[in-house]
């Protein structure tokens, strides 16, 4: 923080009024209203009736059989969708870390001139429309797409690999979508890393990999955690990759929510409840991040 500037201090609250009005009215208030909606009664053809009920959460967690007269059991359908989404997001985060950390390290250790070029190359896809990137990936990996043609022509596979509509394709899509989010914060952390620490470790006969594990990783940890959060959170609620690259068996939270607001089949309170559960998971991840960051900062 640049510190207080006396001439600006009295103005500060007034300068924040537009932010409070716009974000408060169009981001915060809608989320609060969504929480209220998750406790309302569903109206057919979309929309709600202002009658408070726990029906939406009941539908999510509890199975009472087709006619609602059987003893209550735990409903697995939606928990499974959340489980699959959590697993996909976790795998995506791990893959992004495994590829993203070396990339960030490599770029940060280039001489200033070439470093700018490498960084520029990594940032471009980050700015390209996510929809276009996902469509491009689908075009590349589809059954008679260029990837399969190439694999068959060099004789690696005899028939096309059925990639589209599998969990693998969705994972590839997520990985491809959010990889730059991992590289950039780790890069920022490695750029500030003091390489004298590595040299000291090397002087004390630590091997390269021991140095990486014992010295580098703990020092750049805030960047790694930031990268993981930036990948995990959007991957968990992703809509485009599962929708375009996946099928019914790869259904994720994003599609489940979207379905509830589509046309007359929808169920707004249920969609709001699923969104609330997703938001709760994300908040838990963010609180974990904030606590880790605070602990690192205190050291």
């Amino acid at each position: 923080m640049a510190g207080g500037d006396d001439s600006w201090r009295p103005l500060a609250p007034r300068l924040l009024i537009p932010t409070w009005v716009v974000i408060g009215l169009f981001s915060l208030l809608p989320v609060i209203l969504m929480a209220v909606y998750s406790f309302l009664t569903k109206e057919f053809r979309g929309g709600v009736i202002w009658d408070f009920t726990l029906a939406a959460y009941d539908q999510f967690f509890i199975d009472r059989g087709l006619f609602g007269d059987e003893p209550a059991r735990l409903e697995w359908t939606y928990i499974n969708i959340f489980g699959r989404s959590l697993l996909q997001a976790a795998i995506c985060t791990a893959l992004c870390l495994v590829v993203g950390f070396p990339t960030a390290w490599f770029i940060a250790t280039r001489p200033a001139r070439t470093r700018a070029v490498w960084l520029f190359l990594i940032t471009i896809p980050y700015w390209v429309n996510l929809l276009i990137r996902t469509v491009s990936l689908k075009f590349l990996i589809r059954d008679n797409g260029p990837l399969n043609e190439a694999l068959m022509s060099i004789g690696l596979t005899s028939g096309p690999l059925p990639l589209v509509n599998t969990n693998l394709a969705v994972q590839l899509g997520l990985f491809y979508s959010y990889l730059p989010f991992m590289v950039l914060p780790i890069y920022a952390a490695v750029e500030r890393y003091n390489f004298a620490l590595s040299e000291a470790a090397a002087d004390l006969y630590a091997s390269r990999w021991t140095t990486l594990r014992e010295i580098v990783l703990p020092v750049v940890k805030p960047g790694i955690i930031a990268g993981c959060i930036l990948v995990f959170v959007p991957a968990l609620g992703a809509f485009l990759a599962p929708d375009l690259l996946g099928g019914a068996k790869t259904f994720m939270i994003g599609s489940l929510i979207e379905e509830q607001f589509k046309g007359s089949q929808g169920n707004w309170p249920f969609g709001a409840a699923v969104s609330m559960i997703l938001l709760t998971l994300v908040l838990i991840a963010l609180i974990f991040y904030a606590r880790t960051a605070a602990r690192e900062g205190a050291r």
């Binding site: 809608p30 989320v31 609620g237 809509f239 929510i257 979207e258 709001a272 994300v282």
Partner: peptide, 10 residues
């Protein structure tokens, strides 16, 4: 901080 799909719904 809020996932995009949640902002969309809200």
């Amino acid at each position: 901080m809020v996932p995009e799909i949640v902002t969309a719904v809200a």
